[in-house]
Simulated assay, not measured.
Amino acid sequence: MARIAVVTVPSPQSWIIVNALVKFFGPVTIVAEERESKLTLIRRRMRRQGVITILGQIGFVLFQRLLAQKSRKRIGEIIAEYGIDPNPNAACEMIKVGSVNSDACRAALAKLAPDVVLVVGTRIIGKETLSSITVPVINFHSGINPKYRGQAGGYWALAMGDPDNAGVTVHLVDEGVDTGAVLYQARFKATPRDNFITYFFTQAAIARPLAITAVEDALAGRLKPVKVDLPSQQFYHPTLWFYLWTAWTKGVW
């Protein structure tokens, strides 16, 4: 049996993909990264983006709690429509590590000796961890690379008036932010009932066959990156005022 490791911060979206893998390949091993502390995240982003932008992003994060409550019905519709399972899978062994860049993570992966590693929603993987892995490392990204790298790529495509590039990418991992060679991409169509919260459920749903195919290709030694002729840009969380303005003026929630 193939040894598949999924490195992730467990979430409904990551379980949607993991459960699809389990259904196709059998149980996989989860290397579960702890979510980065909000204070650490705020400090790092403040150095890059400035105080005003960070305050706006904090406001948006708080607003997401209300948005999530209002999205429950639509999330249920997406789950039913795609037949996805966002619940933890007890059949999968889970190894908890503080960070993908920790000695504990590297030790866990060395002990597992997987044939392929799939990454879903972790912090950027550093050189030391990447160089310690001798098998293909594949990432699921919620956006079309390289045009919508970083966070919430599906939302940003819609907010920028570019719905044809609202989608997902499965790509090889390098030391950059979603800059690795592209393997597969797929697009989705948002409905007026969708918003920042529900996009991620649809994106995870359409990514399932891409992730399965990429893992199959890695196991068979036939990974073939494709060239994508798009400009490259990195995005972060929107500020609250940008989100509300875009929702009001463009109907993109």
Score class of each variant (00 low, 15 high):
residue 191 T to V: 02
residue 200 F to G: 03
residue 177 V to W: 04
residue 180 G to Y: 03
residue 190 A to N: 05
residue 173 V to R: 07
residue 206 I to H: 05
residue 212 I to W: 06
residue 199 Y to D: 01
residue 173 V to M: 09
residue 181 A to S: 14
residue 176 G to R: 12
residue 201 F to P: 01
residue 178 D to I: 11
residue 163 P to V: 14
residue 164 D to S: 15
residue 168 V to W: 08
residue 170 V to S: 07
residue 166 A to C: 15
residue 173 V to T: 12
residue 205 A to C: 06
residue 210 L to T: 06
residue 199 Y to Q: 01
residue 186 A to M: 14
residue 199 Y to V: 08
residue 212 I to H: 09
residue 185 Q to H: 10
residue 166 A to I: 07
residue 195 N to F: 10
residue 182 V to R: 05
residue 203 Q to K: 04
residue 205 A to P: 00
residue 164 D to K: 15
residue 214 A to C: 06
residue 183 L to W: 01
residue 205 A to Y: 05
residue 200 F to T: 02
residue 214 A to W: 01
residue 175 E to P: 00
residue 196 F to N: 01
residue 191 T to N: 09
residue 164 D to N: 15
residue 211 A to P: 00
residue 189 K to H: 10
residue 175 E to D: 13
residue 195 N to V: 12
residue 167 G to I: 14
residue 180 G to F: 04
residue 203 Q to F: 06
residue 168 V to R: 13
residue 201 F to S: 07
residue 197 I to G: 06
residue 193 R to T: 09
residue 167 G to S: 15
residue 206 I to W: 05
residue 188 F to K: 10
residue 188 F to L: 04
residue 214 A to Y: 05
residue 214 A to H: 01
residue 212 I to A: 14
residue 185 Q to N: 11
residue 168 V to M: 07
residue 170 V to F: 07
residue 201 F to Y: 15
residue 189 K to I: 14
residue 191 T to A: 11
residue 204 A to Q: 01
residue 193 R to I: 00
residue 191 T to Q: 07
residue 189 K to S: 12
residue 200 F to N: 09
residue 174 D to C: 11
residue 195 N to Y: 10
residue 191 T to Y: 04
residue 162 D to F: 08
residue 180 G to A: 10
residue 165 N to C: 09
residue 189 K to Q: 10
residue 168 V to F: 06
residue 202 T to G: 07
residue 170 V to K: 07
residue 171 H to F: 11
residue 195 N to P: 10
residue 205 A to D: 00
residue 198 T to K: 08
residue 175 E to V: 08
residue 186 A to N: 15
residue 197 I to N: 06
residue 186 A to C: 13
residue 188 F to R: 06
residue 169 T to C: 13
residue 183 L to D: 03
residue 188 F to Y: 14
residue 192 P to I: 04
residue 190 A to M: 02
residue 205 A to H: 04
residue 202 T to K: 10
residue 194 D to I: 03
residue 181 A to H: 11
residue 214 A to S: 09
residue 190 A to W: 02
residue 184 Y to F: 13
residue 207 A to I: 06
residue 165 N to K: 04
residue 163 P to M: 10
residue 209 P to G: 07
residue 210 L to P: 04
residue 193 R to Q: 14
residue 214 A to T: 05
residue 175 E to W: 03
residue 179 T to P: 08
residue 205 A to I: 02
residue 187 R to N: 08
residue 182 V to D: 04
residue 203 Q to S: 02
residue 205 A to F: 08
residue 192 P to E: 12
residue 188 F to E: 04
residue 184 Y to S: 08
residue 184 Y to R: 13
